Simulated scan of single mutants.
Amino acid sequence: MMCNAPALAQRIVAEKALDTPLPGRGETSRRLHTLAEQCRDGIAVGRLVEAHLDADAILAEILGERVAPGDFWGVWAAEPPEPTVTAERQGGRWELTGAKPWCSGVAACTHALVTARDGELRRLFAVDLTQPGVWPERGGWAATGMRSTETGTARFDHAPARPVGAPGDYLNRPGFWHGGVGVAACWFGGAQKVADTLYAAAADRSDDITLMHVGAVDALLAQGQALLDHAAAEIDAAPKDEVMARRLAHQVRWSIEQVATGVIDRVNRALGPSPLVHDREHAQAVADLGIYIRQSHADRDLVTLGRLAAQECAARRDGSDGAGEQSCR
C-alpha cells in the first residue's frame, strides 16, 4: 500500500517536529543533516518537507518573512515552454492565469511560491491555494517512483497573488543555490535509505562479493557526507557570495548524483533482484530516488560547471602575476 506522503509531510510540518535553521546562518550543516534524515526516513515525504523548508528560506531571504504556523507550502517553479502561467496587474493587485505543471503536493499544499511570466520577465509570487481561482489536477504520472508526492498541474484563473521581490529576485540570489545544495542533501538521504538494505543483508552474509559492495557503498556515502559538510562550511563562511554558491551547488549536485547512482548500482549487484521484487519499501526507495535525481539537468549542469570553473581559473590567472596556473587546481 502506497503511503500518503503529502499527509505525512504536512503532519511533520504542522507538529513542528523540525527545528531547521535557515541556510547561511551558521548552522547549515544541521539543516542539510535534517533534510537528509527526512529522505532517509521516506524519500517522497522528505521531498515535500524540503519544499516547505525551501519556501520558508526564500521568504526569509527576499522578504524577511517566515511561513505561518499551520501552512504547508510548495515551490512550483518549473518553466517548460508550455503551458505557462502569466501575471497581470488588475487594479491594485496581481492575478495569475494559466497552468503550472510539475507541482508536488498539488492537492495538499495550502500555499505555494509560483513563478509566472510578467511580459518577458519572470517573477515569483506567493499564492493562497485555498482561494477560488485555484484548482489542482492529479493524474498523468505513469511512473512508480515519486508517485505518492501527488505531483500534478495547478491551474489558475485570475487568482490573486502577492509578488515576492522584484523580477529576477528568485534566481539571482545566493539562496537559490543554497536550496540546490539542500536538494542534493535529500538525494544523499535517499541513497542512505537504499544502502540500508545492503547493510542489513551484510549482517547475515559474509561472502567476499557482498562485503566488497558494502565497502564500496560505505566509501561512497563517506564521500557524500564529507562533500555536504564542506558545502555547509563554505555557505556559512560566505552566505552572500552568489558566484561561489553557484559553482558549489553544481559541484555538490553532480557529485551527490554520482554517489546515489553508484549506491543503487552496488546494492542491485550485491543483492540481485530479490529485494526489488519482494521488499516493497526498498523497491519504492530505488524507484523514488531514480526519479528524484533526474531533477538535475544532467550533462547540461556539467557544461555549466565547466564554464564556471574555466572562468574562475581565467580570472585568477589574469590577476595572479604568474601563479595562476597553480591556483586553478
Rank of each mutant, 00 (worst) to 15 (best):
T110P: 06
V286A: 13
Q326R: 14
C109Y: 03
V114M: 02
Q251M: 11
R266H: 15
A203E: 14
A216Y: 04
L53F: 11
T34I: 15
R122F: 00
G26V: 05
L220C: 03
I12V: 15
W73Q: 05
C328N: 00
G24W: 12
D128M: 03
L129Q: 06
E15N: 13
Q10N: 12
R329W: 09
L211V: 06
L221Y: 04
A323L: 11
S148V: 12
L248Y: 04
L228R: 04
R294L: 15
W102S: 10
S104T: 15
W254Q: 13
P273S: 07
L59I: 10
C103S: 01
L22C: 01
A51C: 14
T261N: 02
S255H: 08
A159R: 09
R66C: 07
R280W: 09
P69A: 09
A233V: 10
E137S: 12
T110Q: 05
V127P: 00
K16P: 01
F72K: 04
I291S: 11
V164P: 01
G64C: 05
W135P: 01
L63F: 01
A203L: 14
T84A: 12
M244D: 01
V75E: 00
G322E: 10
E257M: 05
D218P: 00
Q10S: 15
V194H: 11
L248G: 03
Q295E: 09
V85Y: 01
S320I: 00
P239R: 06
A191E: 04
H158K: 11
E82A: 08
A216H: 12
V263I: 13
A323N: 03
D19T: 13
S296M: 10
A143R: 15
V243S: 11
G70E: 04
A323I: 02
K193S: 12
Q295I: 06
G182W: 02
T197D: 07
E65W: 13
H230L: 14
Y170W: 14
L171Y: 07
F156V: 00
G189S: 07
A260P: 06
G182R: 04
R155H: 14
R162I: 07
G46I: 07
